[in-house]
Design a protein around this nucleic acid. Structure first.
Length: 511
RNA sequence: GCCAGAGUAGCUCAGUGGUAGAGCAGAGGACUCAUAAGCCUUUGGUCGGCAGUUCAAAUCUGCCCUCUGGCACCA
C-alpha cells in the first residue's frame, strides 16, 4: 500500500471544556483533510486528548473522582465536539490508552538503552505559601517577591534527555528544510530561539509527587513528564513498531497553535525522533489565536466561547465557514457574536442561501422542477461562465497555499456574479413574455444557475460538507467525492435532473 | 531588553513599484423570482510617523511610534 496523507491536530489537554480555539484547530485540520481527499489523496486524520499530568490529577481529586473517570468525561466532550462540527477524523487517540502507553515506554527504554537518557539531580525552588515550584526567572531583581513567602531550594533525582547535543543537527535540519514550519516567519522564530544554547530536557517527575502518568520503564519510581508522553501520540496512534506504520508515518502535517511551536513541536519533537531513528514529520502548520472582541480569551476574563453553543445557534457548517473565512492561517483573528451573525446573514443567508431559494422557486414555477436545457448563449451567459472559468482554479490554488479565507472570498465573487446574472436576465419578467426566445432565455438562465450552484457546492465541500451536499442534491447533482471532473463549468451537466423542494438553508436569526 | 507579526475607508481585511480596492455598516434608487432578499448608484482613506532611493512607493531602505505574541522545563 502506498503512503497515506497523514495529518494531525495537537492533542488537547484534558483540563476543561472545549472552547473555540480547540474547535478552530479541528475545523482547520478537517478542511485540509477534506480538501486533500477531494484532491485524490488517501487521507488519515488523527486528533485526540492528552490526559496525564498534575492538573488533571488535581482537578479529579477536587471533584472527588478517579483521574480516569474525569478524563472519560472530558473525552466524551471533545469527541462530542468533533461529531457536532462534522470533523472527519479517522481516529481519536487518548494518552491513557494502552496502545499509547506501550509506545511511550518502548521509546523511552530505547533511548535509555542508547544512552540518550541519563539520571542527574534536578535543582529547583519551592514556595510553601503559594504551594508552587519556582524558577530563577520568577525572581525580581535577584530576590524572590514577597508573595512567595519563604522559598526553599531543593534537589531531587530526575531523568534527562540529551537534547543539547542535537542542537546543531536541528539548526542544520531547519536550514535545509526551509518549509518545515508554515508560515515561514514562524520558522525564523525557531531559529532565533536556537541561537541560545539548549539545556537537556527533564523528562521525569517522582511518583510521590505525580502519580497520574506513565511510569518510566527503567525506573518505576518516576513517571514520564509531559512531552515524551504527549508528542508521542502522533506515532503511537499509527502503530509505531508494527506493520503498516510506514504507510502513515512520517506525518504530512501537524496542525498546531502558535503556543506549542517553540519549543515542543519545533525543537523537542524533531530531536526526539531523530535520536530514536524515526523520520521527521514533513511540515508543521501553525495557526494563530482567536481574540474575543479584541481581548484575549481567558477564563479569568470570563469571555470563553463555547463552540457547541455556536453550532446550536447557526449550525455547524456556518461555524466552520466563519472560522475559515475570518482567520488568516498563521495570524490572530477576532471573534465576536456580531461578526459571526453578520457572516451568517450576509454571505450565507443573503448571497448563497437566497440564491438557492430563488433558483428552486423559479425552477418550480417556470421549468416544472427540472433543470432545463440551455439553448441560449448570449453575453450574460458567456460572462457568467467566464467568471467560473477564471476563478475555480484560483480557489483551489488558494486552498493549496492554506489561503482558505481568500479561497472563500474568491468563491463568493462567483456566487455574487450569479446573483447579478439573474438581475441581468430577469427570468421573472421574461417569463411573462410571449416571445419564444424569451422562454428559452428563462430556461437557459435556470440551467446556468443550477450549474453554478453545482460548482459552488463542490468548491465549498471542504468547508461546509453538509450544506454543500444539500445544495448538490437540491440542484439534482451527484454527490462529490473528487474535484477531478467536477470543476469545469459545463451547462449541460444537470440537464433533466430534478430540482428539490424549496429549502431555506440559512434561516434568518432574530436578534 | 532581544526577536517576530500587525498597523490601508466607521468595522473586517485584500493589495509588494505605475493614477488607492472588496465585503459589511451608512445614504439614495429601480425592481420583485427570492430568506424585507438580490441588483444599481453613492458617502468615506494625507495606506502608523519622519526621512531616503526612484521618472514613479501602501509597496524598496533607514530611523521612530503603537498593539500583539515568543524568549527553555510551561500540563
Amino acid at each position: 500500500m502506498s503512503k497515506q496523507f497523514y495529518i494531525t491536530t495537537a492533542i488537547d489537554y484534558a483540563n476543561g471544556s472545549p472552547h473555540i480555539g480547540h474547535a478552530y484547530e479541528k475545523v482547520l485540520t478537517d478542511v485540509i483533510a477534506r480538501h486533500r481527499r477531494l484532491s485524490g489523496d488517501a487521507v488519515y486524520f488523527l486528533t485526540g486528548l492528552d490526559e496525564h499530568g498534575q492538573k488533571v490529577q488535581m482537578t479529579a481529586n477536587k471533584e472527588g473522582i478517579a483521574p480516569q473517570e474525569y478524563c472519560d468525561a472530558i473525552a466524551e466532550k471533545f469527541q462530542g465536539l468533533c461529531s457536532t462540527l462534522n470533523i472527519s477524523n479517522d481516529d481519536f487517540i487518548r494518552t491513557t490508552q494502552a496502545r499509547h502507553k506501550d509506545v511511550v515506554r518502548q521509546i523511552l527504554q530505547d533511548l535509555f538503552d542508547k544512552g540518550e537518557i541519563y539520571r542527574a539531580d534536578y535543582k529547583g525552588f519551592y514556595s510553601k505559601r503559594q504551594e508552587q515550584f519556582l524558577q530563577e526567572k520568577d525572581k525580581v531583581d535577584g530576590e524572590w517577591p514577597e508573595i512567595f513567602g519563604e522559598v526553599e531550594e531543593f534537589s531531587e533525582p530526575a531523568y534527562f534527555f540529551k537534547l543539547s547535543q542535537y542542537q546543531d543537527w536541528l539548526i542544520d535540519f531547519l536550514k535545509t528544510n526551509e518549509d518545515f514550519v508554515f508560515p515561514r516567519f514562524r520558522q525564523k522564530q525557531v531559529l532565533e530561539f536556537l541561537k541560545e544554547p539548549l539545556n537537556d530536557l527533564c523528562i521525569s517527575r517522582p511518583k510521590e509527587r505525580l502519580e497520574w502518568g506513565i511510569p518510566l520503564p527503567f525506573d518505576e519510581d518516576f513517571v514520564c513528564y509531559v512531552w515524551f508522553d504527549a508528542l508521542t501520540n502522533y506515532i503511537s496512534a499509527v502503530g509505531y513498531g508494527q506493520d503498516g506504520f510506514a504507510e502513515k508515518w512520517p506525518a504530512n502535517f501537524h496542525v498546531i497553535g502558535k503556543d506549542i511551536l517553540v519549543p515542543p513541536h519545533a525543537v523537542y519533537w524533531p530531536i526526539m525522533l531523530h535520536a530514536a531513528g524515526i523520520p521527521i514529520p514533513k511540515q508543521l502548520l501553525v495557526h494563530g489565536w482567536w481574540n474575543i472582541s479584541g481581548e484575549k480569551m481567558s477564563k479569568t476574563l470570563g469571555n470563553v466561547v463555547d463552540p457547541i453553543q455556536l453550532a446550536d445557534q447557526v449550525g455547524p457548517d456556518a461555524v466552520r465557514y466563519f472560522f475559515i473565512r475570518e482567520m488568516n492561517v498563521g495570524q490572530d483573528s477576532d471573534f465576536s457574536a456580531d461578526l459571526l451573525l453578520t457572516r451568517y446573514k450576509t454571505d450565507l443567508g443573503n448571497d448563497l442561501g437566497n440564491l438557492v431559494s430563488r433558483q428552486l422557486n423559479m425552477g418550480g414555477r417556470y421549468a416544472d422542477g427540472k433543470v432545463p436545457a440551455a439553448t441560449i448563449d448570449e453575453e450574460p451567459e458567456q460572462e457568467l461562465k467566464k467568471v467560473w472559468d477564471e476563478n475555480t482554479a484560483t480557489v483551489i490554488e488558494q486552498y493549496e497555499g492554506f489561503q482558505f479565507h481568500r479561497g472563500l472570498d474568491t468563491a463568493w465573487v462567483c456566487i455574487r456574479a450569479c446573483n447579478r446574472y439573474l438581475e441581468v436576465r430577469q427570468p421573472w419578467k421574461l417569463a411573462k413574455s410571449e416571445d419564444a426566445t424569451d422562454k428559452e432565455r428563462v430556461l437557459t438562465s435556470l440551467a446556468y444557475v443550477a450549474e453554478s450552484l453545482r460548482l459552488a457546492a463542490t468548491l465549498l465541500t471542504p468547508v461546509m460538507p453538509t450544506i454543500s451536499a444539500q445544495i448538490l442534491e437540491l440542484v439534482g447533482a451527484d454527490s462529490v467525492t473528487a474535484y477531478e471532473g467536477n470543476l469545469t463549468f459545463n451547462v449541460g451537466t444537470l440537464e433533466g435532473r430534478s430540482l428539490g423542494e424549496k429549502t431555506i438553508l440559512f434561516p434568518r436569526i432574530e436578534g
